[in-house]
Amino acid sequence: MTSPAITELLDEAIVQEIADQAWTALVGEDEVLVPLPGELPADTLSAWVAVVGPWTGSVVLTCGRETAEQLTRALLREHAPAVLDDEDVADALGELANVVGGNVKAVLPGPSALGLPEVGVAPRAVASADTCRVDALWRGQPLTISVQGAVLDAVNADPSYGNGVPL
């Protein structure tokens, strides 16, 4: 049986809408994702959740490390410490990926399972035919959300604890 490609199941507009809702609710009411591409800096951080089911892959959020820190402060607001540690940033970016991923999963055919968020170097993307990518700017800084098919060996090994840090 051949699995459907992600581009047959959703499009960029759906992913953008899901991300917009997550941003407004979690990052802030006035925070918007402008659907324009930008060049990611060299030092990036990715957070992702795996989806395993009729379609198997990952929902990956990638941005510059500085952007990730600003997102963390936006999520924590007055509870943000003066100096953020890596665990805070991983937690915040992972939770954003988790919320976007959970809502992406909801529009995909089921039944499927969602893995726990992971943070690190993003899983390798497969063919562009099985990738739906949204490029956006938040506060003028680039980030990407990629719904990408799995490299099967990596996902089959363990969907929850792949090549990142389980949260």
């Binding site: 963390t72 999520l75 924590l76 607001r77 937690d91 939770e95 726990l116 968020p117 949260l167």
Partner: peptide, 9 residues
């Protein structure tokens, strides 16, 4: 919640 950030939210 296993996310401290989400507990705060």
């Amino acid at each position: 919640d296993d996310s401290r950030v989400m507990r705060q939210i």
